[in-house]
Simulated scan of single mutants.
Amino acid sequence: MNDTLIQIITSIVTSIIAAFIFWFFVNYLPERSRYNKIRPKLEYDIYEICSSLFHFIEIPLRSNTYSPANNQAKLFAGMLNLDDFELALYTKCLNDSYKFDKVASCLVPIGDELESLSLDICQKAQQLYVFNQYLTVEEILLIRKVTVKLRAYSYNSVAAIEVGNQTLYPINPTMSYMCRNFYDIYLFFVQLQEIVFKYKKIDDTISGSIKRTISARRIMNYCHRGEYEQCLKYAKKSDDNLVWAYKFISLYKTNKEASAVFFLKQQLQTSNLELKYLRDTFYDFYKDEILKNILISCRSMTEYKEMADCIESEQNYSNQMILHAQNIRKYYKEK
């Protein structure tokens, strides 16, 4: 190899090394520092969007204006289907102008709340785009899909339409026609929630309970989806009192009954809460004889009876609401 070729190669290698050093100190390190400062705030903002999105899709699932949806756990876990939203939306209307027929008293107006919340979510999303270089492609595309779906319908229209000298009203004044859109938004929420679960940099100084809430919700979702081994895996890493119920359920459902019973007795001895306030934990198997005897022995028959009465009352109310919605749907489909 002659001297000229060696000089050329040396010059090229030296230039590459110099360019890399320049890029590393002038571009990469400052940009990485900026990313580490901005990303925690962006993760918090996306968490807030995810939380607001949950409230948006929860609104039509409420049985009335003031009570939260009674299937929130399944909602978080991604276990609802299209029919659940259709049935719920048959009991809702946009505003009082749609309450014009004999079913009017059964319809709950929710349009104003949806309008306000959808605009708020879209505004938060717009603010995020300013820092899109610090967002992943998946986050950008998913949030964009959410905002498009949120504004696909008008939430403040009125029922009556003037055509010449006539005033026309819709045959079906409910919001059931929006069920597919709400279901799509729900699926986007589930996807966004899974992204949030993976966040490592989220700013916990704004609200000290964010990481705790995210951890507990992930454990809860695994439990409600029947992914008990995953639930136990994450519950063992957590010292949060909020998750002991899911750990117990997962132990019991995976045939680790001895461990489950021992763990349950420990929790009942250290908790001052009455059984009726722990009813969600025993909702699916409060009639199980083994568990029933443990609950009675650790507490009392009176406490157990109060819990059982609460569970059965809630089950009856839920069944009544489903039947009520089914009757409204049948009425409009046969109209």
Rank of each mutant, 00 (worst) to 15 (best):
T4R: 09
I9L: 15
S11K: 08
I12C: 03
I12H: 03
S15F: 07
A18E: 01
F20K: 08
W23R: 03
F25A: 04
N27G: 09
Y28L: 14
P30Q: 13
E31P: 02
R32P: 01
R32E: 01
Y35D: 11
K37Q: 09
K37R: 15
P40V: 13
P40C: 13
K41L: 10
L42V: 09
E43L: 07
I49D: 10
C50P: 03
S51E: 13
L53P: 10
F54Q: 10
N64I: 11
A73C: 06
K74T: 02
L75Q: 09
A77L: 11
N81E: 15
N81D: 15
D84N: 10
F85S: 11
F85D: 10
E86L: 02
Y90N: 07
N95L: 00
N95W: 01
K99I: 05
K99L: 06
F100A: 08
D101P: 03
K102W: 02
V103M: 15
L107W: 06
G111F: 02
E115A: 13
L117V: 06
L117A: 08
C122S: 15
C122N: 15
Q123T: 06
Q123E: 10
K124I: 03
Q126V: 04
L128A: 07
Y129N: 09
V130H: 07
F131I: 00
Q133W: 04
Y134H: 11
L135I: 07
T136I: 04
V137K: 00
L142K: 06
K145C: 05
K145G: 06
V146T: 03
V146D: 01
R151K: 07
S154K: 14
N156W: 09
N156Q: 13
N156P: 00
N156Y: 09
V163H: 06
N165H: 01
Q166H: 01
M175Q: 03
N181T: 11
F182G: 02
D184M: 12
Y186N: 07
Q193E: 14
E194Y: 09
V196G: 03
F197H: 06
Y199E: 03
I202S: 01
D203R: 05
S207L: 12
S209Q: 13
I214R: 08
I214W: 08
R218L: 14
I219A: 06
M220Q: 14
Y222G: 05
R225Y: 06
Y228A: 07
K233D: 13
K236H: 13
D239A: 03
L242Y: 12
W244D: 09
S250E: 07
Y252A: 06
T254R: 01
K256D: 10
E257T: 14
F262C: 00
F262N: 10
F263V: 00
L264Q: 00
T270C: 09
L273P: 00
Y277C: 11
L278I: 11
L278G: 01
R279Q: 14
Y283C: 05
D284C: 04
D288H: 14
L291S: 03
L291H: 00
K292L: 00
L295T: 08
S297R: 02
T302V: 04
E303K: 09
K305F: 04
M307H: 00
I311Q: 09
Q315V: 10
S318Y: 14
N319L: 15
Q320N: 14
I322R: 12
I322P: 05
I322Q: 13
L323A: 13
A325H: 11
R329C: 07
Y331K: 04
K333F: 12
K333G: 12
